[in-house]
Structure formats: structure tokens, C-alpha cells
Simulated scan of single mutants.
Amino acid sequence: MWLKLCLMLVFFAIPLCHSDSVMNMIQAERYPAEKHTLFTKDGYILTVYRIPNMSASKYNRKVVLFMHGMTSSCPAFLTFGRHTSAAYKMSDAGYDVWLLCARGTTYSRRHIRMDPKDPKFWDFSWHEIGVYDIPAAIDYVLDHTNQTKLTYIGHSQGVTAFYVTLSELPEYNDKITIAHLMTPPVILKHNHPMVPRSMDGVHAVAAWFRNNGIYEVLSHSGATMDIITAVSQFCMRPTGRDVCRSFVYILFGPSNLYFDELLATILNHIPGGASYKQFIHYAQIAAAQRFQRYHHGIEKNMQIYGTPEPPEYDLSKVRANIHIMHGTNDWLTPSDNVPILANAMGRYPVAISKFPGYNHIDFAYGSNLDMVHRKIFKVQKLFY
């Protein structure tokens, strides 16, 4: 009887009956926690976690939706506990907090028809996250909280996909009070030497993935986790710490991460899994120097788009209040790209905040998150 009740609740998209590691994280910090299930228009079943604020009137409730970056997942905003992580700080400030786990990640690996073992399950990039996942979450959260607008906080891919949402579905601009967008990989010019410059090379890499039957990458299971465990153990050693820091610097820029204290905690949830097409789509917009839809090849582009090249996302349709946050040491999304992005929008952002010395992942896992949070709250005061 209890099992039947749980199954009914799952399929009617209300809080689930059992807890998991994310629920345990939140409850261990003595916050109330809920786990919700929602469905996208293309059939993916997503998990969204909630730290509810029941003290405010249901008609005057401040709501915030968090969205993580690629290969990460919603625990990114919970990892360091109540005194350091953004989700808890927003809850302490009186917000009703929601954390979305994008399709394909550890906590959103379901579909109404397909299994993750099916290659078709992984036939998506961050475009689909932008046109399906984020709109579904916004609508679900607003409906559940009886509100008309919410605050959005996104990191990395959570920014890219959000720009897709607002440009492809411009009516969602009206559902955003303010969006705090950290490290925006949208305009990929002036980039790291490792970022590809040749579209032919990108297509060759995509073909290699398909020909070898690799559709999911960096999942939080199997051989990947064996490697992650070994890396974690190596990085915690005095002799390995500097090597690991150097590797992070090469990928993301110089940083000061929590290697000593919380690396093992971070790696409990990262990597969270992704489709190979998410990586390929980023490589494409870097090579093309255009913020555009997925490049399937000329023949398939003609079938899907009616043009040999993918259409660009129309950033002039982005009219929500935007707060861009970027670091001067970010090698994936260099500071020089930020004014280009601002000029491409229909209006200038509400604010552009520069963080000296921060790299791409410092906004989620750095040693000075408090400065980031103070800036968010300072901008929030303009709207609440």
C-alpha cells in the first residue's frame, strides 16, 4: 500500500516519499527539505529540491531558483554547509529556495519512455535544457508558490541555457524579477587556447563520440567514479595537492579552491553526468564565434532549420533584469567577452560585477564565496 502511494505521488509531480543524498545534506543542516518531480514537454523527468520558507504569506513570498553548471548538479549550491553555501544563505534571508537538477545529471536520469542506456536519451545539448528544463521548472515553481515572478541564480551552463530560454521563449522574461548570472559562457571569443577554433575539428570529435557509442560522459558512477576516487585521494596528499591545483589552473584559470578541507565533499556529487552534445555545442559556438543553435551538419541543418548554418539566438529578446558576474582569472569565459554579451542584449544588464582573481569555478567552489553572495544580496535590495 505504501509503495503504491509513493508511485502515485511520483507520477503526479509532488514531493517524493524517500530521501536521498541531497535531502540528507539539507536536513543535516537542520533545514526543511522537499523533493519534487516535474515533467518536461519532451518527456524528461526532472528532480527539483526545495528548502521551503513557510513564514511568508503565500501571496507575498520571495522565490529563488538555482541552476547549476555542466557536469555539476544541484548540490553545487549546498556543498559547503549552512554558513557558506548560497542556498542556505538565501533561505536564511527569507527566500523560498528551489534547486533544479538538469536532464542527464545524477538526480534527473529518467524519461517517460526512454532509458539512459538508450542513445536517444542523450540526444540533447544545453539548447534543450534552455527550451524545456528551465521553463518547466519556472512554471512549476511559480505555480507551486502562487507567485508570478522569481529570482534566478545560474552558474556557467545554467547561464547559457537561461539565455536560450529568454531568447527562444521571450515570454519568460516577464517571469523573472532579477537573474544573477555567474561566469556566462555565451559569447565565446577571446578564449582559452584549449577552446577549439575549427568547426571541422569539432565535427570530427562529435563523429568520434558517435562512432564509439559514447553518448553520456562523466557520469557519477562506474569507471568514472573509480577514477574520481583515485584523484581525490591523490589530491589530498601533500605531494599531490600542487599537481591538482595546477590542473585546475590549466582548465579554469588560477584559483584558490577548498582542496584541503572539502575536495572529497565536492567529489561526492561531481561529475554529475552530461551528454557529449553539451560539450560539442560549446565547442561549436567557440569555433563559429556565434551564439547559435546546434550544428548538425549542412544536410541535417537544412532539414531542421531550413538553412545550411544554424540560426543565432536572438539576444535582443532578452529584456529581463540581468546581473552578470565574472572573474578576471576565468580562462573559459574571459572578461573581454562580457561587454560583447551586454551589447548584444536588447538592454544593458542591471549590473556587471567583476571579481578580481576569481576563475570559472570559484563562483561555486572557491574559497571566498561570501564576496559573491554579498554582491547578490546588494543587487537584490534593488528589487525587493
Rank of each mutant, 00 (worst) to 15 (best):
P356V: 00
N173Y: 10
T333F: 04
H295D: 15
L99C: 11
P334I: 01
R210C: 01
I324Q: 05
K375C: 05
V141L: 07
V64Q: 04
I376S: 08
Y95T: 01
S198N: 14
P75Q: 07
H373I: 14
L341T: 10
D336T: 01
G158R: 08
Y163P: 00
Y358S: 04
W126L: 10
A93K: 15
L315E: 10
S246K: 13
D200I: 09
L315C: 05
A87V: 04
I227C: 05
N359E: 11
E299F: 05
Q157S: 01
I352F: 03
N173T: 09
R293E: 12
K375W: 00
G222I: 09
T183F: 09
G154L: 10
V350Q: 11
L332T: 03
P349L: 07
K35N: 14
I361P: 08
I134C: 09
K354E: 13
Q303L: 13
I112W: 00
G69S: 04
R197L: 04
G366A: 07
Y107G: 02
W98G: 09
V159H: 00
T79Q: 03
T151N: 09
K375S: 11
H323Y: 01
T328K: 05
Y140S: 04
Y140E: 08
L7S: 03
D143G: 15
G297H: 06
I340H: 04
F12I: 14
K58S: 12
L9S: 08
K89G: 02
S335F: 02
F209V: 07
S167E: 10
W126I: 04
T37E: 02
I322V: 15
I129Q: 14
L38N: 04
Y313N: 06
T224D: 12
F355R: 06
